[in-house]
């Protein structure tokens, strides 16, 4: 960005003091450009000087944040209409010529206030799907099973899911009228069912995603895989789980 363009950047932020979307309002802030500026550093500047562009005092914007290096999943929001983490949203690429930047909370989760939404549902789904390995205990039992490097690589790519909510937000089949649990948890079922010990409980996990709101509710829009910040092969996971649940539905009774 050229020196002469280093003027203040305007941020349009959708705000709600009480978490009621119907009464949300837009506020505009001006923040001086600085090197390596991202949406988080802009929000931090607003905290230090909570005044709108018009000079009106206002409470600082609230949002979730922690690691600021896109590994915790906290700071997911809509930036210029796209769901993503605020920490990796660099101002020089969002606003190369000084365009205003818009920031809104995600829409598929209950709103708490300003940019904070309640993602509890995603964690509840992980419980429902038994997204863990059943170990006998944490006492010494020697090494785990051997794993081929290719299997490790597949597992690692799935295991980087931060439960950030991007895929759920982007999915057209997740909405008020649908109980669909969303892509993230389905991919986690694939992860645990892939593991040599995790496999032993594969059926239980499949059962958890076979009923209402489960894998069959996926409409194959493929939005999820496009917005995932960790490039997790979500549609591939959904296909795998779709096939496995189908097999279980057709032949599962034979195995009992």
């Amino acid at each position: 960005m050229a020196e002469e363009n280093k003027r203040p950047i305007t941020f349009r932020i959708k705000r709600s003091l009480d978490g009621n979307r119907d009464s949300s309002t837009w506020e505009e802030f001006e923040v001086p450009w600085e090197p390596q500026m991202n949406v988080i550093s802009a929000l931090m500047a607003i905290q230090r000087k909570p005044k709108t562009k018009e000079g009106r005092e206002t409470p600082p914007v609230v949002w979730e944040q922690a690691c600021l290096e896109e590994v915790c999943g906290s700071c997911t929001m809509l930036i210029n209409g796209k769901v993503r983490q605020a920490c990796t949203a660099l101002i020089d690429s969002l606003s190369p010529n000084g365009e205003p930047v818009t920031i809104e909370p995600m829409t598929k989760f209950p709103l708490v206030r300003d940019l904070i939404v309640d993602r509890t549902r995603m964690f509840e789904n992980l419980k429902r799907a038994k997204a863990w390995i059943f170990i006998d205990g944490t006492h010494s039992l020697g090494p785990g099973p051997r794993v081929a490097p290719e299997v490790q690589e597949e597992a690692y790519s799935l295991s980087r899911c931060m439960t950030c909510g991007c895929c759920v937000e982007a999915c057209p089949n997740v909405n008020d009228a649908s109980p669909f649990m969303g892509p993230a948890v389905l991919s986690q079922v694939r992860l645990f069912n892939l593991h040599p010990s995790g496999k032993m409980n594969a059926g239980e996990r499949l059962d958890a995603v076979m009923g209402e709101g489960g894998v069959a509710d996926c409409g194959k829009a493929q939005n999820c895989v496009q917005v995932c910040p960790k490039e997790i092969p979500l549609t591939e996971s959904i296909a795998v789980i779709g096939r496995d649940t189908m097999k279980r539905a057709l032949f599962g009774w034979l195995l009992k």
Binding site: T138, P143, G144, V147, A148, P149, A155, S159
Partner: peptide, 18 residues
């Protein structure tokens, strides 16, 4: 070893070891 049993996807050697 415990973390391995819990499913941590540790990088592997060609022999499948940690």
């Amino acid at each position: 070893f415990l973390l391995d049993r819990m499913g941590v996807p540790f990088n592997r050697t060609p022999e499948g070891l940690l």
